[in-house]
Design a protein around this nucleic acid. Sequence first.
DNA 1: CATACCTGCTAACTTCTGTTGGCATGTGCA
DNA 2: TGCACATGCCAACAGAAGTTAGCAGGTATG
Lengths: 115, 115
Amino acid sequence: MSAASPPTGDDLVRVLATLANPHRLRVVAALARERAYVSGLARQLGISRALLQVHLRKLAAAGLVTARMELSEDGKAMNYYEVEPFVLTLTPQVIAAAIETLTVPDSGEQPEERS
Amino acid sequence: MSAASPPTGDDLVRVLATLANPHRLRVVAALARERAYVSGLARQLGISRALLQVHLRKLAAAGLVTARMELSEDGKAMNYYEVEPFVLTLTPQVIAAAIETLTVPDSGEQPEERS
DNA sequence: CATACCTGCTAACTTCTGTTGGCATGTGCA
DNA sequence: TGCACATGCCAACAGAAGTTAGCAGGTATG
């Protein structure tokens, strides 16, 4: 499900917050080249599994990557991750449009009330 | 200075981190419609000046908005902000490309060393 | 049976970020 | 002179995010 058209404001924030992290960007980049399982990916990126797992979890929560459990030839459980081919275009206008679907208690931002 | 082509990885992270915030998105949205000065914008958004100033500072640091000091008719110093017409397209490939210009001490991510 | 590989979870610490409130400064007008 | 509105900065607290270390479970091989 590519996000060619930016979804709700909340989703936008979530996706941006998710991508705004060096480790997660590296993960996305790595998975963009080739899918991988957590332990292997952790080794490849030089970070701990626990840490990677947290990041993968966030990426998955934002819908940027997906996980698939598989059994290797020797019977080991491998959790393979792969990127979701998303496309997100950011411009002031796009943001302005997304704003209207932002869930935040605000006092003084009513669309029809102007100064 | 529109960022049609994603700059360094560090810049990417900075921009994403900056935009990953409801308040800042609102600010960008507001400025996209019309430029504004801090006090007025704070009133319009329903947040404190101090808070808005912090966010504006971050947005400016990321190059997403610019400030221009002006004098109103009655001699008051008004600091007007306006959006920078940026265009940022995010895809796994774009990210993969940006990764290579990421400043992070990593052990095991040398471009030429593979598994 | 020990070792090596895979998976997952949680508690706890540390660091960063957001947010508030107060203070200082300046101008114009009643 | 006192009020209103503009600017800015800084200290301090609260909460979220990143990170580590340890535990527990699984299968295959020497």
